[in-house]
Design a protein around this nucleic acid. Sequence first.
DNA 1: CCGATTTAAGTTAGCGATATCACAGAATCT
DNA 2: AGATTCTGTGATATCGCTAACTTAAATCGG
Lengths: 355, 355
Amino acid sequence: MPRRIPVSTTRPTTLADIARQAGVSVMTASRAINGSGYVSEDARKSVMHAVEKLNYRPNLSARQLKVRRLDAIGILLPDIANPFSSELVNGMKRVLDPEGYTVFIATGNRSTRQEDASLQSFLDHRVDGLIVATRGTAMGDKALRSVVQQGVPLVTIGRPIHFRGVDSVTANHYQGAFDAVTHLIRMGHKRIGFIGIAPAHGKQLRRYQGYLNALREAGIEPREEYTVGPTEGPAFATQEDGYHGMLQLAQLHRPPTAIFARNDFTAIGAMHAAHTLGLSIPDDVAIAGFDNIPLAAFTMPPLTTVEQPIAQQGEEAARFLLERIRGRSQDRTATMECRLIVRQSTDLRLRNSHR
Amino acid sequence: MPRRIPVSTTRPTTLADIARQAGVSVMTASRAINGSGYVSEDARKSVMHAVEKLNYRPNLSARQLKVRRLDAIGILLPDIANPFSSELVNGMKRVLDPEGYTVFIATGNRSTRQEDASLQSFLDHRVDGLIVATRGTAMGDKALRSVVQQGVPLVTIGRPIHFRGVDSVTANHYQGAFDAVTHLIRMGHKRIGFIGIAPAHGKQLRRYQGYLNALREAGIEPREEYTVGPTEGPAFATQEDGYHGMLQLAQLHRPPTAIFARNDFTAIGAMHAAHTLGLSIPDDVAIAGFDNIPLAAFTMPPLTTVEQPIAQQGEEAARFLLERIRGRSQDRTATMECRLIVRQSTDLRLRNSHR
DNA sequence: CCGATTTAAGTTAGCGATATCACAGAATCT
DNA sequence: AGATTCTGTGATATCGCTAACTTAAATCGG
């Protein structure tokens, strides 16, 4: 471990400096600053004046050592490029800021090892609670279980949890996918493909289950060759996956007339492949995605997709966490409904709109 | 301020617990764990054994209080939806992780007040250094100046800094824009529009200056009516801005035959408007963007754009910060070159490629 | 074989904050 | 009036950790 030479310019102001400047004891200064206990108006004023003058900021490490509370919560995200992340954090902040909590973010960068490291960092810094929005893995589950055992309040987002002591919030991906595929069926499609995961790995993927069941409920037996995608299980599917998936499906003897893509990125890749192949959308092939990323309204044609209430998931998770921190011990779960947004990539009759 | 009831399940293990369990003094335990000073092999082993058994993790607040070092650095980002953010953080982590630093991220959400709050939070927690990647504002500058005065090592990214004691890293946006516009001129265009900022507010925007000078250097006098965009100064320009900007330019008596958009989102909005108007790209209007977001290769047609070395900026910023923390006091600045990526939105002759 | 060095521990004293106890004077109650 | 409560303040002891000092045995070189 390399040595670090500190560049101590001026020592930061401490409570003792304030007390000296204000002519009171440190305890009185502390009380004045925190508004606890009895402090005369005179004393309060001169302390506040000193705080202002010396530009005092309490040392949170010192405070935390004593009160065992950091007023900070940690958020673990899979990665920040993800279009969710921002909205999710906004939702959480909306709830946590007014309560005086600071929010720190760390990312796992899709690597379980990095996720564990970030999680450990939060624990080492003794945050008051954790919100974890990374994808579920066996290794990750083990780490989370130990978090719970250590008594640190924990809420997960979009991740099924298999043990107690945790709250969780999720969107109804199953229903969203079901609705999207049902919409395609209503538009007259019978041969509907899924791009985003290899058939063998789709058991865990609720979006895929929604796709399968929508077909079955309409009396259409899903065909395995209509499902294409990466085999990496819960990995995020990309534009490239969508592009290659579409090419693959187009080569079939009787190719699908409609595509339900695992997410909007995948859908955009599929659209691109369709253009390349000279297929027109939605006449030759209809395409629907999932997530309603900002760009979805700006593809050509605009993309039909499913919107999940991201900010609300963040808010709810934050509320759950606050309740946990304040002592609730029963587990709670919230499932938020998704909303189908029909645009021209599946229905030409719609006006060209950005909504 | 609401009261918080702690849910103390089991008190976390302390060094004293370890010492007791291992049958040594706390100091020996500390030395064994930190690998400092002399510790016999026997003692080290039994301490490590106790650490393992009791699942001990040092209390970083307590340690920080003593050693005045947190081994953590704070990163302030404008918002996380931004496609940079992720890459930027990856670059930083690549440098900081191996040095034993933990990275915490906070966002300002494009609000100066929130940025200040996040910055203050980092300072209150006494991080060892700060990397700030938010857009420059007067209020923000003031806050940063005070950071420097407090002796906290600071590096900025993509933000011109007007005072000393700060390192900064930036991409050569000017050159990138210059190259893109020069490319448009070489493709035979003479009437080239800029979408992304109102002409009166473009003074600060290096991308706009690059546009103007590329025109002038080619002997083309820029026309004010060819520049359209929001008036909010350094705000981020969106798809909507691009869409409306394109509509506006198309209404001119002699509309531009090429568009240089402030960023890829704006370019995508403009492309969408062009499609809506029945203009073909690049025959009726060529369009170039900036940033090379992942989707840029998947628009129809693929978008010509300028790529800036994001991860490298993150790495360099992290290296600068480490040097500062270790005592360097001269200011350093790095400017990274951008790279023009020509695709079919400006040049039809190219093969359809995703590179 | 003896002083000097190295190795291996333990003791003490804080870091900067707050909880707790102690105490004095003012205000209120019975 | 005397007891009781309310105000306002300060002294002291920690929180969990490590720097600095101290002690003591082991090792070493001439």
